[in-house]
């Protein structure tokens, strides 16, 4: 579980995060949603320890990040997996090299043990014949799956995904969403996903946090988001006619 207590972050005169408090549950897919510029990426980078909040605390299973020593922070980071918006795969390495990298850096496993683990996670994300390809030789969806494989290869306690299905076609986006949800439940990981994809909200949003101008505007589940009266949330989530109709049908069914 990750607990966030009143964090503030600014860059120069721009106050990006203005006192966000929330908690992300273990074994659940927690979604952060909001318009572009609402502070989602800065928030997730604070959770990762890439940005230090000026005020407030973030604790991981009771350990407050800012109170840990440098080496303890690095050890904690080894328990985190991250899927970046652009996948952030190492261009100079093959798919296998990318997934193998954390194992080589942080474990004392033998070559065959590492190979078994790499084969296992690549199979888990449905990538079987791409071991020796370079990131530039595979599609965006495959790159995302490699990024997920690299993120889970060390059995992380916390998985962070920054817009994991941006730039993907709807079918691949759903596959990626489902894969992340399956992995979250299978390994009981605390997963935090940064998204503005409404399909993700409806499909896998077991807990949703809506950010607006650096403030937590609303919090709930994908069931509750249908019923909410919060104008900012409904304007954002149901901005398209299709989603307005879906919501209408859902509410009529319930009544």
């Amino acid at each position: 579980m990750i607990e966030v207590d009143n964090i503030h972050k600014s860059f120069g005169d721009a106050n990006v995060l203005k006192g966000i408090s929330t908690c992300f549950d273990k074994g659940k897919t927690n979604l952060i949603i909001g318009q572009s510029g609402s502070g989602k990426t800065v928030f997730i980078k604070c959770l990762l320890g890439l940005f230090a909040p000026e005020k407030g605390t973030i604790s991981y299973d009771g350990k407050i990040y800012s109170e840990l020593s440098g080496s303890e922070q690095r050890n904690l980071r080894q328990e985190m997996g991250m899927v970046f918006q652009g996948s952030a795969l190492f261009d100079s390495m093959t798919v296998e090299g990318n997934v193998r990298f954390p194992l080589e850096m942080f474990t004392k496993q033998s070559d065959s043990e590492m190979q078994d683990r790499v084969d296992f996670v690549l199979k888990r994300v449905n990538l079987i014949d791409a071991h020796h390809k370079y990131p530039s030789e595979i599609s965006g969806g495959m790159q995302k799956r490699v990024a997920i494989a690299r993120a889970i290869v060390m059995n992380p306690k916390y998985l962070f995904c920054d817009e994991p299905n941006s730039g993907l076609d709807p079918k691949t986006a759903i596959l990626i969403d489902n894969l992340i949800q399956e992995i979250t439940q299978e390994y009981n990981i605390t997963t935090v996903i940064n998204s503005h994809d409404m399909n993700s909200v409806m499909e896998i949003g077991e807990k949703i946090i809506f950010l607006k101008n650096g403030i937590k505007e609303w919090e709930g589940t994908n069931k509750e988001i249908f019923k909410t009266d919060n104008e900012a949330v409904t304007n954002f989530v149901y901005s398209s006619e299709l989603f307005k109709k879906v919501r209408q049908m859902y509410l009529e069914e319930r009544n």
Partner: peptide, 18 residues
């Protein structure tokens, strides 16, 4: 610089690599 732009350096730091 390209590694910075494409978040590869962020990926290294998140993993706990110096």
């Amino acid at each position: 610089g390209t590694m910075r732009v494409t978040e590869q350096i962020d990926a290294l730091e998140v993993m706990g690599v110096n």
